[in-house]
Amino acid sequence: MSGGDGLTGRQRLSRWLANYEVDGVALLVLPAIACMLLLFIYPFLHGLILSLQPRSGEMLDNYRKFFSDPFLYDTIWTTLRLAFPATIINVVMSVPIALLVRRFRRQRLLTAILVVPITLGPVLIAEGMLNYLGPQGWFNGAIVGLGISGAPVRLIHNYAGVLISLVVAGFPFVFLLTLSFLSGLDPSLEKAASTLGAGPRARFRHILLPLLLPALAVNFCMSFVQMFSVFPAAVLLGEPAGATRVISIAAYQAAYEQYDAPMASTIAMIMGAVQLAIVAIVLGSRELFYRGSTGSGKG
């Protein structure tokens, strides 16, 4: 490119790009795109191709193997059986608690207390539950001591243990999302309903709930992602060889115990597909709800 010509060419190009709002500022998005393509899309495609190149046999053999071995395909059901109830419990619980906290004067303090589980990490929750809910722990000591139950309740090393730890660990994020959406709702909507004589229950059913449902759907998806990839809790608090053998354990074993990278990728792909299918269903049903402005316009 010669100097003068190149300049006009460049000018022409930049004018043409500016028509599409592509200028220096828009280009700032490029590093993020490059990062995502290199670290997310490329490995994903690599994994997909790898999953289609089994160690022996045909292209789809890994997938065939997964869906013909109950030890492998059962993990999907095991995972869903944990992830669904945990997510639903959290989403449902978050609504009344967020409504309550919203009215409370020391909202920030209360929120901070409810957010603390974020800082614990899987191991502390597991250790805490093993100590506290174990057969010799305070919880069972109190239950037996108060005569609520004759024998200690078994709450660890089984399905219940993993479920409880998922609920505890997942609640803060769900709660924060619900609370932030509630604070974004225009309070005059509720006031109007109340002026027209609607009681608290009616206000909730006809005003808040319809407005909240789309946000709860998003909330459900965000939280379900975390629950679906449950790994440390299932190992430390469950029965990793039995009732809580979740899909991520299967993926881990393929990758780091059998060193079968194609099979591990296959399981990862299946995990992603199941997860995305559920997100698609939930977000798809969002179309059935009200969609539109719910804020007070202050942004």
Binding site: P43, G47, M222, A251, A261, I267, A268, L276
Partner: peptide
């Protein structure tokens, strides 16, 4: 493209990424 990594469990892309 930016929403996808937040909507997929870390293990799903973690294993291929590690490979």
């Amino acid at each position: 493209l930016l929403l996808l990594p937040l909507m997929v469990p870390p293990i799903t892309y973690g294993i291929p990424l590690a490979t």
